[in-house]
């Protein structure tokens, strides 16, 4: 504690008070629930007595229970697809847009600003809008696709188990692209122009300059964007709630939504906590990767 205090340059108490409030807030509203969740996942929870801390120890029984459920395999596969595909398309589309808006053309900055509109909207609102777009009978998406001759019959995006997961992924990609584009734009803008000029004089064509200069110079930014995107995707909840609620028949069920359903809809609190704890470990691993990649950034 003394060591911690000595980090403040002037110990007049003011800085300590300010930091104290923030720490207290984090501890109360993030730290305690996290800890409580971990504790719950190792306990046998009886909803008749919700206000107790000491419950029978269950060991790994809750985790075994979660994995032995019939939907566990599908939820795992869905979660991997949801995170993997969302990330892939968010980063690739975000990167392409970032490079596009780095070019000097009329209204480039204005249009880049427009792209941020999606980002500032709450996930729930975005979910409702996409629900209208995806609607089977009167949805805009089906109308456009059939008019263009791409589709011959309507797709019931949200109620067809074959499509529901991908519909959610499409909406999530749309929601995540602006954030990716913004961070990647900053990274791209930080690459000195004379490196490209030197490479051009060295004989590199546009493609070779991208692979030889842009991509290696973006390594740390990409690392940060991918890890932040992974964390945000694993936390995506309101979009799922607005669109499919994991259905139909768990076809779009992912771990974070499943955990909430278990805990607060079917009141299998122990199982829900186990899933949440597993997700937390995953997020923690990605967070460590993120911190390491930003540390590398500082070294260059």
């Amino acid at each position: 504690m003394n060591k911690l205090l000595s980090r403040f340059p002037r110990e007049n108490g003011f800085e300590i008070t300010l930091a104290g409030f923030a720490l207290l807030y984090l501890l109360l509203f993030a730290g305690l629930p996290l800890l409580y969740n971990i504790v719950l996942s190792f306990q046998q929870v009886d909803l008749m007595e919700p206000a107790t801390l000491l419950r029978p120890f269950a060991g790994l029984a809750n985790y075994r229970d979660v994995f032995s459920r019939p939907e566990a395999g599908q939820v795992l596969s869905n979660t991997l697809q949801f995170v993997g595909l969302s990330l892939l398309f968010q980063v690739v589309i975000g990167f392409l847009l970032a490079m596009l808006f780095l070019q000097d053309f009329p209204l480039a900055t204005f249009m880049r600003g427009l792209f941020l509109a999606g980002w500032i909207m709450p996930g729930l609102v975005v979910g409702v809008i996409w629900k209208l777009l995806f609607a089977g009978d009167y949805g805009v998406l089906n109308h456009v696709l059939t008019q263009m001759g791409i589709l011959h019959s309507k797709i019931f995006w949200l109620s067809d188990p074959q499509w529901s997961l991908y519909a959610v992924i499409i909406a999530n990609v749309w929601l995540g692209v602006p954030f990716n584009m913004l961070l990647l734009s900053v990274g791209l803008a930080a690459i000195p122009a004379d490196l490209y000029e030197a490479a051009e004089l060295d004989g590199a064509n546009a493609w070779q300059r991208f692979w030889g200069i842009t991509l290696p110079m973006m390594k740390s930014t990409l690392g940060a964007v991918v890890s932040l995107g992974a964390i945000m995707t694993m936390q995506q909840f309101d979009l799922l709630a607005a669109l499919t609620q994991g259905g139909p028949a768990n076809s779009s069920q992912v771990a974070q939504y499943w955990s909430w359903q278990l805990s607060l809809q079917t009141f299998e609190v122990s199982a829900g906590s186990a899933v949440a704890t597993l997700m937390m470990v995953l997020v923690l691993i990605v967070a460590v990767i993120y911190v390491r990649s930003t540390r590398n950034e500082r070294m260059v």
Partner: peptide, 10 residues
């Protein structure tokens, strides 16, 4: 070309 900033690939 030799650039003022050298423009070495970092």
């Amino acid at each position: 070309m030799v650039f003022q900033s050298y423009a070495l690939y970092p």
